[in-house]
Structure formats: structure tokens, C-alpha cells
Design a protein around this nucleic acid. Structure first.
Length: 151
DNA sequence: GCCAACGTTGGC
DNA sequence: GCCAACGTTGGC
């Protein structure tokens, strides 16, 4: 079972939104980067995903969600009124994918970015590589355990 | 609000 | 196919 990390601005979608969701799942859509999309496509039902809060007051890993539905064409790419609309995409040849995720748990505390940067064994984590902008990335089992152990 | 780093676009 | 210009990301 693979493990992942996704970035999100909590003002858009936070771990609390997952916890409080009336519907059980939240679609992870609007990803418009090819490398991130490819990782989305690799996600399988049941995979665990760290939720990372970015561009906010408390930056860091806040909780865990689970992949409930593996990749399907992101409907927002076809909606002209969506900020994620992509006129070059067609239902026959969709460019972008989404997955559905559900709340699993909040971590006992948010693990701040500067701590993640200082933990031994996380040097290879894409999140903390210089200038990184990936919003969806794989996390190795070992990296996952190191982060969890510091929660 | 600044700005470094990056991905994408489009002219050639 | 190159690469300059541009827009975006995201920490600070």
C-alpha cells in the first residue's frame, strides 16, 4: 500500500474540512501539473495520504486521509465556469485526473515544516527539496514512519 | 508583500 | 527544439 503527501491551503481545504465533511469523501481535483497528476494516477484505493497545510499561519503536516476512489477524469476541467477549466481538454481525451479522499485522522499535533526539515532520514522527501513545487508526491514507508513518530 | 525557483507558453 | 518572457507557488 503506497503512501503519499498532498499540499493544500487550509483556507481552501483543510484536514478539518475532511473531519467535518457531511459527505464522506472530498474530491481532490484542480491539480494542474503533469508530474502531480501522474502521481494522482498512481494512487490506489486504500492508500494513506498526509495532508500538508501550506501558505498559512501553521505550516506543516496536519493529518491523514485515505484514497477512497482511484483516479478518474477531473470534472472541473470541463466546466467553463470553473477556475480549473481547461479548454484544451475533452471528455474523449481528458488531461487531468482527480481522486476521492476521506478523513482518517488528525495527528496529535501539527508537525511544522521546520521540524520536518530537521528530522534525520527525510532528506529525500520531495516536500523539502529546494524550490520544490510539487503538490502531490510519494512518501516512502520509512519517511512516513519518521514523520508519524514525531507527531 | 517580497522574491526565488520553477513550469509553461509561444515566437522564432 | 531553443529559450526568453511570463505566471504561479509558497516560504519568509
Amino acid at each position: 500500500m503506497a503512501k503519499w503527501l498532498v499540499k493544500t491551503e487550509p483556507s481552501e481545504c483543510s484536514i478539518d474540512d475532511f473531519e467535518n465533511a457531511q459527505v464522506q469523501t472530498i474530491p481532490w481535483d484542480g491539480v494542474r501539473n503533469y508530474q502531480a497528476r501522474n502521481f494522482l494516477q498512481e494512487m490506489a484505493e486504500g492508500d494513506d495520504v498526509f495532508v500538508y497545510h501550506s501558505s498559512c499561519k501553521h505550516i506543516g503536516v496536519a493529518g491523514i486521509v485515505r484514497v477512497v476512489t482511484s483516479a478518474y477524469p477531473d470534472p472541473t476541467q470541463f466546466r467553463a465556469d470553473s477556475p480549473y477549466y481547461d479548454p484544451k481538454s475533452t471528455p474523449e481525451k481528458p488531461r487531468w485526473q482527480a481522486v476521492d479522499m476521506a478523513f482518517e485522522k488528525k495527528l496529535p499535533r501539527l508537525i511544522p515544516l521546520d521540524e520536518i526539515k530537521s528530522l534525520p532520514g527525510l532528506e529525500g522527501l520531495a516536500l523539502i527539496r529546494r524550490g520544490n513545487r510539487l503538490s502531490v508526491m510519494p512518501v516512502t514507508e520509512q519517511q512516513w514512519q519518521i514523520i508519524l513518530a514525531n507527531a
